[in-house]
Design a binder for these strands. Sequence first.
DNA 1: TTGAAAGCGTTACCAC
DNA 2: GTGGTAACGCTTTCAA
Lengths: 354, 354
Amino acid sequence: MPKREGTTIAGKRDPKTRVKPTLDEIAERANTSRSTVSRAFSRPDLLNPKTVAQILAIAEEIGYRPNNMARALSTGRTGNIGLLVPDIANPFFPPLIKAIQSQADALGLCLFLGSSGESGARENTLFERLAGQTDGIILASTRLSEAQVKIHAARHPITLINRDMAGLPRVLIDTQAAVMEAVGFLAENGHRHIAYLSGPKESWSNQQRMEAATEACRRTDMRLSIIPLSEPSFEGGEAAAEEAVAAGVTAILAFDDLTAQGAHARLSALGIDVPRDISLIGCDDALPAMTYPALSTLSGLSQEAGRHALKLLCDAIEHRDGSQDMKVVLGARFILRDTAGPAPAGDAKDRDRS
Amino acid sequence: MPKREGTTIAGKRDPKTRVKPTLDEIAERANTSRSTVSRAFSRPDLLNPKTVAQILAIAEEIGYRPNNMARALSTGRTGNIGLLVPDIANPFFPPLIKAIQSQADALGLCLFLGSSGESGARENTLFERLAGQTDGIILASTRLSEAQVKIHAARHPITLINRDMAGLPRVLIDTQAAVMEAVGFLAENGHRHIAYLSGPKESWSNQQRMEAATEACRRTDMRLSIIPLSEPSFEGGEAAAEEAVAAGVTAILAFDDLTAQGAHARLSALGIDVPRDISLIGCDDALPAMTYPALSTLSGLSQEAGRHALKLLCDAIEHRDGSQDMKVVLGARFILRDTAGPAPAGDAKDRDRS
DNA sequence: TTGAAAGCGTTACCAC
DNA sequence: GTGGTAACGCTTTCAA
């Protein structure tokens, strides 16, 4: 390793100025030791106030910035956390990321972001890379297998969002009650046959919703067509909408808002009016805040989820041993807006006939 | 610093297994030196292939992961890059972030994300924090003052997105031609008075658009009402739309898609039909891919911008000295969709009268 | 082709 | 209250 005193980039006025001031630099100027300077930052209470003041002044003067890497190497704490999401472009995630980011900020933590493109393999690589530079990682609705999550969890603190694995801290947005409400609303409004556009099979959220929809339809004696989405995207929603129409439903419950919007677009293209001809309900409440017309949906709570997740993660990082089976469940609700209403008259007749 | 051999978390089978295997660990097992093991990873070509193979095997067996922090401390390279955006929830950014993320991924770089909540002060703090753990930072349309950017740039490689500062590598999405196209379209379709919903004053993009709109209206002899947005959000768009209506325009050009959607919502709430009564044009093409009805807009190119930005940043990191004034300009275009069309008949009469 | 050893910038233990 | 010093895990020069 070469000496790299007074490297290329020139100092300001002081000829002695190095590129990056260090603790030793300050120690020298303050005529004190490295340890004392270090303490001036980490535990000033242990020091003579005058010493602290002097050190801080010098630090300020020469523009000292503590080196996180060195600190991390020594303490084993990085002050960073990681967040892995399947697709940052999916509107469900930005609010969640934002919530986590701003809370991390408040805690003085920096955020590593990984967007895996819905690929489990990529997620593994990303996890591996992030694990080395973070104190813990939040896994949001990822495509990782249970086994893989467990392996990772054994090495590194983890918090899960929308995935229910016993033994790991997790926060779940429970949409089952909301799905029931929504289906109940449709039943009361004369609908007899509805579709559920089903998302990724591995998705806990999707399993929950499908299960609730099935149960709710059973109770209300409605017919349910489950239509799998080719992918949880706008385009996926478009294609699925067509199938729903072919199936003859009068209402569509979509896996999420994005697919609901795709469905809306396709329905309109087919000359089908929402909600006059077909009612449409999304999920997550991610898009309605930025789109018109206002989509009926199930409330999202992604921000609350983010906040809780970070909190759980921090707890997990603190006492890595006492892994009490922490689990936070947030209950979503049905939000009626402009895209859902009574079944069309023709269908009401169907009901009379039957 | 205490010895922390065989810490809490138990090894698998080998009683000697520490929590985190290190180079020395491998060296010991392979009966070789730390240096050799290090080289087996960084410069295997310098070593006897057999030695390399043996080392790699052992590494694999005990699950060795190089410690990024230590490596960074020694080399001065972190392998991380930072990205600062004003608001990740603004739909312009996710695609951009995604593009940068996936390319960073391909290059083996990890991404630090900072979302500043549109606050310059916060951005400074974030920058400071990220600078210590990244090799370079991409600043996307931030609210930092020129002076501050310069200060930061002097210490740390930077690339700018949508900000035109000479001397720094930057990528710009030029929407002026697109604005001209859009205004031209409106002029040809009988509009005589339009509004521009103006975004943040410090925003380069906003300045560009406003300037182009002004010039285009001058040329086509149209009246232009500039309406400042209280904030570049859905709500901001709603409020501004009301002012636009009061001003009596027949078309609205919005700062971005999000504000356009807000405007759309308010117009509809007021019983004003888009595009029959008022034409509406957004900018960035961020939302149309996930909303219905399809918004007319100016193409976004945020993904291309992201790709170029990362490329420029990497260049800047390589040869930190030869700061050739790199500047990439991407030209946006007007995209006509469902929300813009001819001026209402009544207005056409206005024109006849004048 | 390999090894020894000197850093990188901190922290934290131990002694004064 | 303060200072010396050994880590933290890795890279890289220099010598063998």
